[in-house]
């Protein structure tokens, strides 16, 4: 089915404003398939009728449902492996030294999707419990999508999901079998707090973090939106903190708030901290 260019333009500008998603014309084919169920659910006869309702006066639930239908929630445990290796070795040893008086760590997982990423972080912390004995660690997981957050909070995964990226020894240690799959144990679930948050909106109330994971979400945004999000993430990261981006993401030519950490793929530091270290 071909898409009316006006319908496409309306949805594209709606999504860009609501979630930052830059919908390119080559993705137009996704619209019908994803929005048809939402149209039916809201009693609309067609996607075009649904889209016509997306103005300021539309009910919040309708808008949220359209946004959520268009997000990509693809994720897996310990996705790409390397960032978690870098966190365990380089980052954790630095932070254990730098925070040894305070003895607490705060980690933000921005765009947590169905929870595999924050639970991977929780398992990593649990595996390093001996090094972290007496420390307080908090993992805050946020996402725009309320339906996916509910799934994440339940912590239940299918047999397929627990076999992507998760070593079987960890499955045995941190999950229990349940109807429909495998459920993260309470000790892991209690390490993660979930909260709805749109990265386009103010999020300074979340406080300051030592580590921020913001992976595989900026790829969906255009450059000004990427810059807007990255610059505000810099404000929430401790000056000597650590930012992890996804494999296809970078700060180069987007912002000067962060610079790549030499020799550590996907890891970025605040430029302010780099400058201070050079000067000092």
């Amino acid at each position: 089915m071909t898409m009316d260019p006006n319908v496409f333009a309306t949805v594209a500008s709606f999504l860009k404003a609501q979630s930052g998603l830059a919908l390119t014309p080559d993705k137009a084919y996704l619209l019908n398939g994803r929005l048809q169920p939402v149209a039916e659910q809201h009693g609309c006869k067609s996607v075009a009728e649904l889209v016509a309702k997306l103005n300021g006066a539309a009910p919040a639930q309708l808008k949220q449902d359209v946004v959520e239908a268009m997000t990509t929630n693809e994720t897996s445990f310990f996705r790409d492996t390397t960032p978690f290796e870098i966190l365990k070795t380089h980052v954790l040893s630095q932070l254990l030294e730098r925070r040894k008086v305070r003895r607490s760590l705060r980690i933000l997982c921005a765009a947590a999707s169905s929870g595999q990423e924050p639970y991977s972080l929780a398992m990593l912390m649990a595996e390093n419990a001996a090094r972290l004995a007496g420390w307080k660690t908090q993992i805050l997981a946020v996402d725009l999508d309320t339906k996916i957050l509910k799934r994440a909070e339940a912590g239940i995964y299918t047999q397929f999901e627990v076999q992507r990226g998760l070593p079987v020894q960890m499955l045995m240690k941190y999950f229990e079998q349940c109807p429909g799959g495998w459920k993260a144990k309470p000790e892991i679930r209690s390490m993660v707090q979930f909260q709805r948050c749109n990265l386009l909106e103010p999020f300074s109330h979340l406080g300051e973090f030592d580590v921020i994971f913001c992976r595989n979400v900026l790829i969906y945004f255009d450059t000004p939106t990427k810059r807007h999000v990255l610059d505000r993430l810099a404000n929430q990261l401790a000056p000597d903190g650590f930012l992890f981006l996804g494999g296809a993401e970078t700060v180069l030519d987007i912002t000067t708030s962060f610079a790549p950490s030499a020799g550590h793929r996907g890891l970025y530091l605040r430029t302010e901290a780099l400058r201070d270290r050079k000067a000092g």
Binding site: Q159, F160, Q163, R164, G165, P167, V168, Q169, L171, M172
Partner: peptide, 25 residues
């Protein structure tokens, strides 16, 4: 799975599986 690991298995794939799972393991 516990029995298999105790006997010395290094990893464990539950069927059905796909190429992504095999590659991951």
């Amino acid at each position: 799975i516990t029995e298999a690991l105790a006997a010395g298995a290094d990893e464990y794939i539950m069927k059905p599986f796909d190429e992504e799972i095999l590659a991951s393991k």
